[in-house]
Design a protein around this nucleic acid. Structure first.
Lengths: 336, 336
DNA sequence: CTGAAAGCGCTTACAG
DNA sequence: CTGAAAGCGCTTACAG
């Protein structure tokens, strides 16, 4: 192969104009079927692959979507990305992916890099973004889809994060617990973490149960964060017997630390997480958690975008159902 | 904002030609510093963001790299992608990501979709790819980097997968085991799985120890695969006492199943995995495994590409060190 | 150090 | 249903 074939080569071999070949590619319905056939065989003979950069410049669309997630280190985001990518690819769209690692400046820089590449839409996680990021995206007229949370300002496919905290709290209350603790990721720049905590707190308040501020501990994401959070809470007097963790990685870290401390889970302390990672049903005891259908989230986000591209109007918000899955890490409040 | 600013707008405001603005952006060293300053302020005033599609068409480079991994569901790939993406982004490159889910036809389709978007390079996992995929990439003159394995045909940043199996086998042999089993992902289209198994087998043969074919069980990727694999092996008579799993997810599945069966690990059966996932050091007992520095792999792959772009010549192969990490799931062979 | 101009490979009204 | 032509917004030799 000396040189990559261009549209003009295909046109020459098929004996038609480049305009016709272009139409055969992007809108075959308007091309006569025998013409189409000639073009098809020319394409095959030349192994023609269209040049996306030229196509993008001429058409103004790249068939590429950008997504910025906090991190791929948490498999919960990796799973959602997988759902997003697979569904987009089936429709001929590709995914530019980036991770901001909970740094808003990084998010802005990455958004700019993606915008420069003329993405057809941008997917972000959470509703909390700097004004600069929002301005950038708006200025370029790029459809913005919020995921994981519902945004008042943008189309969203997300969860009711407040409800997540509520579900955890109500579960503990039903089990008779009265002393609570929270291990959360950092609240700053993370509306999901704030909302889950707020929901938990709100449900307790409604039940007239206390949640001292000191019992809300922020930890960096990771198993170690969960472990550290549990240690802090277990030093409180009176000890909390019911601990809500903002995600499953923190919850598993807390569980492992409790086991390492020879605490009985749930005999001494109950733990509830959020996500329902694949691992959460494998460990023993299985983790009680709030199931988030994140692969579905990815798929629905992709479909929302595809609909948006087609209809030229923003999709309706979708709030995906979450559900408490009770497993072995939660049980009745131990006798005092 | 009515309309996105173009190069000509910046040129107009700065009182220079578009050629000079273009140079100021891509090769500022050749532009006089006061001219540069005028251009800089025009760019800021207009909030100019270059159009990557035009830039790509004119320059022939997109500053975008494509990567196709088996799946993001295994966090080992997500971690490597994170290392790759972060390092590329720091150098101004973005990452188009796709997952083929162990389907070579999907890999080809995705490769085509990425090639159409004129990626500057393609990153693939493993050395095993269809001729069509290889032809496609070669025909378009796209630099191809193999990761995870060393390829005889392409620049690679990978591991010695045979050595991984050997390390596991030698560890078991030192512990006095004589009955072995393997739980592997499917061998088809997966050179890493084949090589790891071959390395294990080879080390046993060298030590004159038997490994019946029936003791090599292939399972689909996932915790369930690991569980099923362990069940199969535990039905063998005589029972194997030492089980090598092709990756940590399979190994953890096997461990959990063994625990569910009330087997003592490592008292009754020893298990060694491969990957050293974050979770593997958290579970109890901790998983003995072969540590693969995958975040590093991603970073080094990115740097190999960046060097390739700069020097115009392919990077040297890099075989990253792997190491056995002994934890609680492996121990001496139980008395017969 | 800077500018005029050709060209990258397509798409898309506009005619016919 | 098809073709000629303008244009998408840049980059990059080539002159000067």
């Amino acid at each position: 192969m000396t040189q990559r074939a261009r549209l003009s080569d295909v046109a020459g071999l098929a004996g038609v104009s480049i305009a016709t070949v272009s139409r055969a590619l992007s809108n075959p319905a308007v091309v006569r079927s025998d013409t189409l056939e000639k073009i098809r065989s020319a394409i095959v003979a030349l192994r023609y692959v269209p040049d996306g950069t030229a196509r993008a410049l001429a058409s103004g669309r790249t068939r590429t979507v950008g997504a910025i997630v906090p991190t791929l280190d948490n498999s919960i985001f990796a799973l959602a990305v997988q759902g997003l990518q697979t569904t987009l690819a089936d429709a001929g769209y590709q995914l530019l992916i980036a991770a901001h690692e909970y740094n808003p400046a990084a998010e802005l820089a990455l958004a700019r890099a993606l915008v420069e590449r003329s993405i057809d839409a941008l997917v972000l996680v959470g509703a909390d973004h700097t004004q600069q990021t929002r301005d950038l995206v708006q200025m370029h007229g790029i459809p913005l889809l919020i995921t994981w949370a519902i945004s008042p300002d943008y189309p969203s496919v997300g969860f009711d994060n407040r409800l997540i905290g509520e579900l955890a709290a109500r579960h503990f209350i039903e089990l008779g617990h009265t002393r609570f603790g929270i291990v959360s990721g950092h609240f700053r720049h993370n509306d999901r973490a704030r909302e889950r905590t707020a929901g938990f707190r709100q449900a307790l308040r409604k039940a007239k149960l206390p949640l001292p501020d000191a019992n809300i501990v922020e930890q960096p994401f990771g198993y170690e964060g969960g472990r550290a959070g549990l240690r802090v809470l277990m030093q409180m007097r009176p000890r909390p017997t019911a601990i809500f963790c903002g995600n499953d990685v923190l919850a598993l870290g807390a569980l492992f630390e409790a086991q390492g401390m020879k605490l009985d889970v749930p005999g001494d302390v109950s733990i509830v997480g959020c996500d329902n990672l694949p691992i959460s049903s494998q460990v023993s005891p299985g983790l009680t958690t709030v199931l988030l259908p994140v692969y579905d989230l990815g798929k629905q986000a992709a479909n929302a975008l595809l609909g948006w591209f087609g209809r030229q109007e923003p999709p309706a918000d979708a709030c995906l159902p979450v559900e408490l899955v009770v497993r072995g890490t939660s049980g009745p409040c131990p006798a005092a």
